[in-house]
């Protein structure tokens, strides 16, 4: 289990967080109860199982709903 901290472009619309939430929850391997999407700081934090899903795929899923990933850190 690893934890990720992803900095996104500035989130503007109120439904942004809903979209990202939906996109990430549709992936396997992300611990849903650790998922925190911060509207004010445009950051996403969650724990994930690196054997079930790669961080690149997670980033791609976020891109697909229309948001740029600026920096992602995995620990």
């Amino acid at each position: 289990m690893k934890s990720a901290n992803i900095q996104l472009e500035t989130l503007v619309c109120p439904s942004c967080t809903q979209k990202i939430d939906g996109a990430l929850k549709s992936l396997d391997g992300i611990k849903e109860d650790t998922l925190k999407i911060s509207f004010a700081t445009s950051k996403v934090r969650f724990d994930f199982d690196e054997e079930a899903v790669r961080i690149e795929d997670i980033e791609k899923a976020i891109n697909k709903v229309g948001f740029e990933v600026i920096k992602s850190r995995v620990k």
Binding site: C13, S15, Q18, K19, D21, G22, S26, G66
Partner: peptide, 16 residues
């Protein structure tokens, strides 16, 4: 429309 499509795909009815 693109944003709307992406939202609907993850089952969100957004402003878009």
């Amino acid at each position: 429309a693109l944003q709307a499509y992406q939202a609907l795909r993850v089952k969100v009815v957004s402003i878009d």
